[in-house]
Design a protein around this nucleic acid. Structure first.
Lengths: 172, 172
DNA sequence: ATCCGCATGTAAGTGGTTACATGATTCG
DNA sequence: CGAATCATGTAACCACTTACATGCGGAT
């Protein structure tokens, strides 16, 4: 459900192929929703049978054929309805925190390594987000809201680093 | 995989029934992993067939029979192996942020309502976490690590509220 | 020559959600 | 008398992941 509506939202910005959508999920939309191509192609087919999107095959001149998907008026209505509906609840599932919770089963070195890996992936993601943010200018209302989700990610990544500081200090 | 190892971790603290486990997932373990009872009972049965847990039926005196599950030595080994393994990566999936990203499809009032609901659920969860934290004292190493995961949750909830402040201010 | 990007999909398996089903005891 | 808590589970469904499979064109 959520994935299909996010895809409709992206198609509302412009017509796209599954491959184009995948790139969005690997960059902009990845801050709040993960999806892989198997899911994307399946959901796209489903949107077409529901009448929320239409396909047009665009012959590739110097590339493979593109299956361009375009949102229909019914698709726009479904997107609007979802936007106004009660948000689904967000269920937390973080394998790293699970390991920390049972971390007494690791010795100090292994624990330190666990925190160090977390710090490294967090730091890298933050650098990535901040670089993306620097690229953007002159936002209208739509772009300001999209930026807000990126800022949300940046704020949480900074918080994670600050939390790691205190936890690692306590471990010494 | 992750769920089965978290259950092993909880069983390592003390033998439990599926119902007991459910209460843990609704409180302490809920900060980092969500699970419902259908999954818990299924996973428990699987752990028994794998030889990682054993069941003992305890006749209820003034209650239904309890199926007490106890971790086996093989189970402890599987838990230790998982703890030391590379953490699975954490995939973000937040329906609220998805709505904000496409928020231009909502009018100002609907947007404000969206943020207000998020603020309310965040505030309530934070109060809950802070109350839990106040209850705890004199921690050993194991308890300090469990507390650290709670502090992680508290830090992120505060960050979310601060982010909401700036976004809602910008909306005026 | 080899690798990377573009572009499409299928199949099998695992993990997670929702709805159905039951029944005793305790507290207000 | 009714609601909440304790306690168990099944069935059907939906969502997500991983591995398999193909092939062109352009750059190094």
């Amino acid at each position: 459900m959520v994935l299909s509506r996010i895809i409709l939202g992206l198609l509302a910005l412009s017509p796209m192929t599954g491959y184009d959508l995948k790139r969005h999920f690997d960059t902009t939309a990845g801050h709040f929703w993960a999806a892989d191509k198997a899911q994307i192609y399946r959901t796209l087919a489903q949107l077409v049978t529901e009448g929320f999107a239409e396909v047009e095959t665009v012959a590739g001149t110097s590339a493979p054929n593109r299956q361009e998907h375009r949102i229909t008026p019914a698709g726009r209505a479904a997107l609007a309805a979802w936007l106004a509906a009660e948000p689904e609840r967000h269920l937390e599932r973080d394998p790293f925190l699970a390991r920390v919770f049972f971390g007494d089963g690791l010795d100090d070195d292994a624990l330190r390594a666990l925190f160090a890996r977390r710090r490294e992936t967090t730091r890298a993601l933050l650098a990535d987000f901040e670089a993306t943010r620097a690229e953007t200018g002159a936002p209208d209302r739509a772009a300001r809201l999209r930026l807000a989700t990126l800022d949300n990610g940046i704020a949480h990544l900074r918080t994670e680093l600050a939390w790691l500081d205190t936890v690692e200090k306590e471990l010494t």
